[in-house]
Design a protein around this nucleic acid. Sequence first.
DNA 1: GTATACATGTAAAAAGTTACATGATTTT
DNA 2: AAAATCATGTAACTTTTTACATGTATAC
Lengths: 186, 186
Amino acid sequence: MRTLKYAILGLLNRRSMTGYDLMKDFNLDLVNFWYARHSQIYPELKKLTDEGLITYETIIQGERMEKKLYSITQQGQKDFAAWILEKDLLEPTPKDIFRLKTYFIEAMELDQMIDHFEYQLEQREEKLKKLKNTMDHHPFTKGWVKIGTTKYGDYIVLKGAVMREQTYIQWLKECIEEMQCGILKK
Amino acid sequence: MRTLKYAILGLLNRRSMTGYDLMKDFNLDLVNFWYARHSQIYPELKKLTDEGLITYETIIQGERMEKKLYSITQQGQKDFAAWILEKDLLEPTPKDIFRLKTYFIEAMELDQMIDHFEYQLEQREEKLKKLKNTMDHHPFTKGWVKIGTTKYGDYIVLKGAVMREQTYIQWLKECIEEMQCGILKK
DNA sequence: GTATACATGTAAAAAGTTACATGATTTT
DNA sequence: AAAATCATGTAACTTTTTACATGTATAC
């Protein structure tokens, strides 16, 4: 479906940037719903250039370091606009190794199960803390942003990420509690 | 990480079955956290057989239809047991095209945004209805299953899937409401 | 008899990860 | 001077998807 293509076009539609900048965006803002390594980004940029959807301008940083500043073309904008308006059917449920292991929980002892859940809980709580911190510093939270601006999209996906994480944590906690009752009954 | 390998071993650790049976399991029970097409399953079964982790027995169904009944070996059980006890670091957040499009929401008009959200909401509500139905018919819900049995894992991941879907829906609804306020202000 | 489900595979392509490879600039 | 960050690429491999390919058994 070439989703990476549209993710890149969408970012370049906001502002021109280098492959390195794109990489940073994927690993910061977008990491909660899309990501890509630089080894995937650079070849894709080449491909999009060949297809005429983006162009670049070579810039010299400092004495001699070259970097390529990519911009979206008119054709790229058209292509992106068509994609974003497409109505999608539900995607398959995302894969989740933790849930897979949980499905096979009969292969663990009760105390191992609880360990397994508590380790996951620790990590998820750490992640939620970071997400909430990002959210608290977001301009929309502070009442500075209006619907329809660039930052509005950033804000609602962030809010969605917080809610998703909170629910995961709630699930973990409820399971732990239930399993601890199992121990007490022993 | 060969997750498909362990998913197959885990299923065969419960009971012997054919590649076709595995495929059905992936598309029914496991679909909420893992899945694979038959074109991925059959080659993997061959590989696991070569590795000595599973074996098969050819069975004749009816007059001449051959099918292979796969079973886990001792080595396979050992391998699976080691995997399930491994402590995993958090996986990267799952990719989500809907959230990606939402991030780029500035490229849509307000009424298009709402359409986009309402279409997703419809589909998610349909999915939640099915999940809840499965849950209501689950033996654990009816109080028949104890912690530590095979069906307990099935139950808690199902419960997690329901919670995840409810949260997605709640997020969609809150966004729609917020956007509708944006329309009223016009 | 016809449609659906059962049953098993392969080939080609796309998507994604890990490792290899190099060098400049800025911060400490 | 060293470490961190900026900057760009390729190669090999794994994972996943889509399409091709074939035939049997069962339910209606």
